[in-house]
Design a binder for these strands. Structure first.
Lengths: 168, 168
DNA sequence: CGAGCTAAGTCTTGTTACGCAACCCTCCTC
DNA sequence: GAGGAGGGTTGCGTAACAAGACTTAGCTCG
């Protein structure tokens, strides 16, 4: 009937909406490659070992969603480069947070395979996720959720929703 | 021949290793639900509208990977609750970073559907990803990558790898 | 002048992962 | 003894995915 996963794009949840775009195995890795400096189709393909048709599909989606732009750098024959947009560049903190989690929980005794260097302060460092108000680390235990301005009116009355946001 | 996506679990990259676990549409949403307080199978199922067999599969994977634990809270008949482990709780910053990106780039004019409240400082706030050394925001343009202690020796000699890490 | 190479895909084919709905089992309550 | 909650499993169909061959168009080497 509808074997394809339903779209999350209109859910009242930024996690769902984001996952709707990057919620597959390859897309995050393509973005990582882009942050590493890859620009060309074959470069992505060789570095990741992704099937070419899958790469075509993912790049098209990233372009459609505005995270990347396709630049023509030569017209006869047409040759393209894929560049991150501002929206795409702004995804870096997410990958940095993922890297931090993976370094901590999935690296063996050898330690992290790759480390980050913050050029501004010239230190090897890792990403930390902090509260924008006080700068302290944001942990789940210290954080609660509240209804935002964009929450749909018609859902607010539902008892399960009420319960969910009761902690305000 | 091998239509299934290859495993990223042994790639020398924490993003790849993490995506190997959570790199599908549902897993991140299940974790979000867990942070919202869901514990039971039917609770996850109803809140997300996920197919039951898919949920079974994802919960099993999360348990196998150590992000959740299955607790027996009643033995006749057996009833279970799924609880986040420390490893699972530590994933919250990733979801907070994703939420921040989604709030900024995917919310309409109405604004974010859900806002975070940091109970420690008692402010509505959002997540910020900062450098662990200097506390400044971590942007892709200010950050470079270096070989970490866990990077496999045999790969270091490859010219494409050398080029990738040349910026140190 | 033809062979081969590069870039960026497209096409074909086959398998598998995923979603849906229906069903199952056990205990509990009315 | 009917119905409901809890926690799944089974069967079925579709669509996502991977592999690899093919395409087009120009350039280069001999």
């Amino acid at each position: 009937m509808s074997p394809a996963r339903p779209s999350f794009a209109n859910w009242p949840c930024s996690v769902a909406r984001t996952v709707d775009i990057i919620g597959d195995a390859w897309t995050s890795l393509i973005l990582r490659e882009a942050f590493y400096g890859s620009r060309r189709f074959d470069e992505f393909q060789q570095q990741l070992g992704i099937a070419r048709n899958t790469l075509t599909d993912r790049l098209r989606r990233l372009v459609d969603e505005g995270l990347m732009e396709k630049w023509l750098y030569e017209s006869e024959p047409p040759r393209h480069e894929y560049h991150l947009t501002e929206k795409g560049h702004d995804f870096f903190p997410v990958l940095a947070a993922i890297t931090r989690w993976g370094d901590r929980w999935l690296a063996g005794e050898e330690g992290a395979p790759v480390t980050l260097h913050h050029d501004v302060c010239d230190h090897d460092a890792h990403a930390e996720v902090v509260c924008s108000a006080c700068g302290e680390q944001m942990r789940s235990a210290d954080t609660s959720i509240r209804l935002g301005p964009g929450y749909p009116e018609r859902l607010k009355a539902r008892p399960d929703i009420q319960r969910r946001f009761a902690g305000s």
